[in-house]
């Protein structure tokens, strides 16, 4: 049984028909990428899975339970965390407080453990634990946003454009961390415009175009696919 199973969801942004019936699944232990151009519906898909938006029809199952109508905060408690597009750290709260918020659904003792783990992975956050998140650099904010999402010890971590606006060296660092997280047991659903990077670390990928899945396959297949190369890999 898949960890996440999205079945034929249709989502509207007000009157805009944004997601026109997409279905996909994520198996435990995988990294799966959703790639596609701006406005293809990648972020909307993640928001719908997280419960911030509701599908008009369709079904979303996570770890065997139907979460289609579940409230966003309960979905987090069920083990599904999202690191949103544009990082969205709480800029007037300290690094430490941001991480505490990430563990909102958990007991204090468990939180301490997660925090040690996050600080071990991101030593730069530890150095700045008392600093307001708004004063961090873009790369540090991305690390904070990822660390914050990890604080709930999710079974499935959804990352929305983690490389956006970062220098190439940092992008590589971020992708390395995603790989490490996956190896230590976290399943990852990745939304990226940087298709090359995303597909190279993914087990499987789906290509979205105007609210529909047009191509799917393993990471390698998609990297070799002519249409994908032309449209998303610049050659």
């Amino acid at each position: 049984m898949s960890l996440l199973n999205v079945q034929d969801i249709h989502v509207y942004y007000g009157s805009i028909y944004a997601i026109k019936g997409i279905s996909f699944s994520v198996e435990e232990g995988e990294i799966v990428s959703l790639i596609g151009a701006n406005g293809a519906g990648k972020s909307t898909t993640l928001k719908t899975i997280s419960g911030l938006m509701r599908p008009r029809t369709g079904k979303i199952e996570f770890a065997g339970a139907d979460i289609t109508a579940m409230k966003a905060h309960k979905i987090v408690a069920a083990g599904l965390a999202q690191c949103p597009e544009g990082r969205r750290v709480f800029s007037r709260m300290t690094v430490q407080e941001n991480l505490e918020m990430g563990a909102y659904t958990r007991e204090n003792a468990e939180m301490e453990k997660s925090m040690e783990d996050v600080y071990y992975r991101f030593p730069r956050l530890k150095e700045r634990y008392k600093q307001e998140a708004g004063t961090l650099s873009g790369g540090e904010q991305q690390m904070l946003a990822m660390g914050r999402a990890m604080m709930s010890r999710p079974k499935l971590l959804m990352l929305d454009e983690p490389s956006m606006g970062l220098a190439p060296l940092l992008v590589e660092e971020i992708f390395e961390i995603i790989g490490e997280l996956n190896r230590s047991g976290t399943t990852v659903l990745l939304v990226e415009q940087n298709a090359q990077m995303a597909l190279s670390i993914s087990n499987r990928g789906y290509v979205l175009e105007t609210g529909r899945i047009v191509i799917s396959g393993t990471g390698d297949e998609l990297l070799r696919d002519d249409k994908v190369r032309r449209a998303y890999l610049g050659g």
Binding site: H73, A81, P84, R88, S91, M101, Y104, S152
Partner: peptide, 12 residues
């Protein structure tokens, strides 16, 4: 500060 991000933390 950010209602949407707070929901993603599991805050009701």
């Amino acid at each position: 500060e950010d209602m949407g991000a707070a929901q993603l933390m599991g805050i009701s």
